[in-house]
Amino acid sequence: MTIVRMAAVAEEFDRDLEGDFARIEKLVAAARAEGVHLLALPEACLGGYLADLDGDAEQPPALRVDGPEIARLATIAGDMVVCAGYCEEDDGGRRYNSVVCVGGGRVLGRHRKVHQPLRENASYDSGDSFAAFDTPVGRIGMLICYDKAFPESARALALDGAEIIVCVSAWPGSRTDAPADLAADRWTRRFDLFDRARALENQVVWVSANQSGTFGSLRFVSSAKIVDPGGDVLATTGVAPGAAVAEIDVAAALTAARRSMGHLRDRRPEAY
C-alpha cells in the first residue's frame, strides 16, 4: 500500500480495562468510517499509565502479548493496522511499558520502552532494542514517549528501513510552574519539537499519539499529530482530545524528501 490514511489519537484512558476497550472500539469504528488504514492509540491505553511515579500506587494490569486482551484488540482492529500501548508481563514475571501493533487478526510487531523517565524504572524493566517490521501499510517502527528524546532511537528504526514511525506517549505537561493553558506549556513545546525533528532528521512519516486529560498527578498535553518527512505537521489535535487524520503517499513523500539531501544516505558514520 502506498497511499495510507492514518490517524493519531489523543484520548483519556484509565485502570478500567473494559472502559478502555469500549473507547478503543469507538475510536476504531470512527476511524474505519473515515477510511483509516493505520491507527495509533496512546501509551498505556490498555489499563492506564502510572498514577504515582514512585511506584507506590496501584499498578496497571499486566497483560501478555499472547494473552486474551491483545487477541481482543486484534479482533477489534480487523484489517486495520492498530498500535496500542499496554503493560506487558513476560514469562519471568517482569513487567515492561510496551506497545503492540496488530492487524489482520494477529500481532505484527511490538516494542518495549527503552528509556525510562521520572522513576518509571520503579515499575518497569527496560527494553533493549529497536526494530522495524513489515505491515500492510508499509514498514513500521515504534517508540514510546521518552524514547523520542534520544535521536538514536528513531535513527535505529530508520536505518532498519522504517518508512513510518509510530510514537505512542503518555506525555504530561510541566509539573512545576505550569501555565493554565497547555498550549503555552514548555513540555507541550518540547513534545511538538521532538515530533517534528525526528521526522525531519530521518525523513520518515511520523505518527504521534498521546494521552489526554489527567491521571493521578499528571495532566497530559494531547497534541497527537501526523508529520511528513520534511518535518511539516499535516494534522494535529492541538492540546485537545481527538484524532489527527491525514492521507499521504508514503513512498512518494519519502522519495521527494530524500532526493537531494538524503539524511540516511549521506551519513558519515566513520566520522562520528
Rank of each mutant, 00 (worst) to 15 (best):
L234K: 11
A149K: 10
I24Y: 03
W187S: 13
A74S: 15
M261S: 13
P179E: 10
A180Y: 09
D14M: 01
S98M: 04
V168N: 14
D91I: 04
R112N: 14
G104K: 00
R186G: 08
G173D: 08
M142K: 05
M142S: 09
G92E: 15
G213C: 10
G262S: 13
D134W: 00
A251H: 08
A256K: 11
R23G: 12
R106M: 11
A178H: 01
F220E: 05
A44G: 05
A7N: 09
F130D: 06
E12M: 12
Y49A: 13
P269A: 09
V82L: 12
L73S: 04
E25W: 02
T135Q: 05
L53W: 13
E89H: 01
R119Q: 11
E25P: 06
A84N: 07
A184Y: 03
R190F: 14
S98P: 05
T75E: 15
A131M: 11
A84R: 03
S222L: 02
G138W: 00
L254I: 04
C101Q: 05
R72Q: 13
N210Y: 03
E58T: 10
F220P: 03
M142A: 12
G92L: 12
R119P: 00
R64M: 11
A240W: 07
A31L: 07
V82G: 10
D16C: 07
T188P: 10
A235I: 02
L17M: 10
S217T: 13
I24S: 05
E58K: 11
T214N: 14
I165L: 11
A170N: 11
L118E: 14
S98R: 10
G67K: 08
V114D: 05
T214L: 03
P241N: 06
G35I: 07
A156P: 01
E201R: 12
A31H: 04
A149D: 13
E88W: 00
A252G: 15
Q203N: 09
L46E: 06
V168G: 11
V81L: 08
A132R: 00
S153H: 05
A256V: 05
V28H: 08
V9K: 03
D266G: 04
D249C: 06
D52I: 01
R267T: 09
R268P: 01
P117R: 10
A40R: 02
L254E: 07
G93F: 08
V207T: 03
D91N: 13
A199Y: 01
H263E: 10
Y272H: 14
D66L: 01
V28D: 06
Y272V: 14
M6I: 01
A33Q: 14
E12I: 08
A33Y: 04
G48A: 09
C45Y: 02
A158K: 00
M80H: 06
E247R: 10
I76K: 03
V36K: 08
F21A: 07
E11A: 15
L38S: 07
R258D: 05
A31R: 03
E43H: 12
V4P: 07
S174N: 14
A44Q: 11
A149N: 12
P241S: 15
D16L: 02
D56G: 03
L193C: 12
R95M: 10
P42W: 02
T237Y: 05
C87S: 15
V233H: 11
T237S: 10
A170W: 02
E58Q: 12
V227N: 06
C167E: 14
